[in-house]
Design a protein around this nucleic acid. Structure first.
Lengths: 167, 167
DNA sequence: CCTCATTATTTTATATTTAAAATAAATCGA
DNA sequence: TCGATTTATTTTAAATATAAAATAATGAGG
């Protein structure tokens, strides 16, 4: 591997560094603003229309793609839901009849969660609304730039994840 | 006003619409993923290093730019903190000696909050860490594309806000 | 004045979130 | 097999979030 010649200068002078700091902060604030704006509106509508929270919807969304069910412990890995948080969410989804939770025969620590038929119906109804709400909110953004922005964010996500995994 | 000739076709055919839905959903999922990834890491570090939450930091950040203090009711407008939520946050910042809260003489309903000297010191210390953490997390993203991405997100935010304000 | 509507803030009730401790079951190595 | 470690999940405790009701002060009209 080439050790020297890591393209541009490795260290930056003070004011370059400052400028980069500011640009990074601006980016972060915009990212946060966009997300909270959209998330707040989606959450509000989910609550009003379906008395559902986003994490509950996310759990159903995951199970919808796994008709044979999913090991409970898989969900915190795929979603932004902590394990401790998952228990009451699953409890309520079971109580509402949207999913079932059955212990595995092979390993009695493991719970397998699976969507019920009502759960599937409810999920599809909600997913449809979710899609149209999103379309409504994003209607003012040019459709031909959706993919470009998505790619940039993909790259950003990858860069952040790489940095976080190093130590 | 021109009624006809709204540039491209007003309605799209089914599969175009579907494709746009998917592109919008992908964008939203990336946006959410980036934000939660960075936010989670920043929150974790804030808590570990300073025993501080982000809303508490945000309040100090606002007050830092207003040396003469701010009317309490101004904060929920500027930040993503609801009014009911603000009370316990401010209570604790007062208890910790970072800010003061004094009723206005002109209107006894109004509270004016103002940063203390200790608050300023604590804020600057935390803001410095915040900046360097962000720089660390975003180091893998090309510096010369920070501003471009920020502009795109600005536009997205504007588009969403416009849509939300219409009804 | 007096009442009604508005505004600023707090309180309340309920839900959710997180980290960390606890429980419980499985596995591995001596 | 025994004991130590790991793994899956739940429980707990503290903090926060939300909406909605309550409180309190102001101001505008009649």
């Amino acid at each position: 591997m080439a050790l020297a010649k890591e393209s541009p200068p490795v260290s930056k002078n003070g004011s370059d560094q400052e400028a980069e700091y500011r640009a990074q902060t601006r980016l972060w604030l915009r990212l946060l603003a966009c997300t909270t704006l959209i998330e707040g509106e989606l959450r509000r509508r989910f609550r009003e229309e379906f008395d559902f929270t986003m994490p509950r919807f996310d759990v159903l969304a995951q199970l919808d793609r796994e008709p044979s069910g999913l090991v409970l412990g898989e969900l915190p890995k795929r979603l932004m839901v902590s394990a401790g948080n998952l228990t009451p969410i699953v409890d309520r989804l079971v109580a509402d009849g949207y999913i079932t939770r059955t212990p595995s025969n092979l390993d009695r620590r493991v719970q397998i969660v699976c969507m019920t038929v009502e759960g599937q119906k409810a999920f599809r109804r909600m997913a449809k609304s979710h899609g149209s709400w999103l379309a409504e909110l994003l209607a003012g953004f040019p459709a031909d730039r959706l993919d470009g922005l998505t790619s940039e964010l993909d790259e950003l996500k990858g860069a952040v994840r790489d940095t976080m995994q190093k130590p």
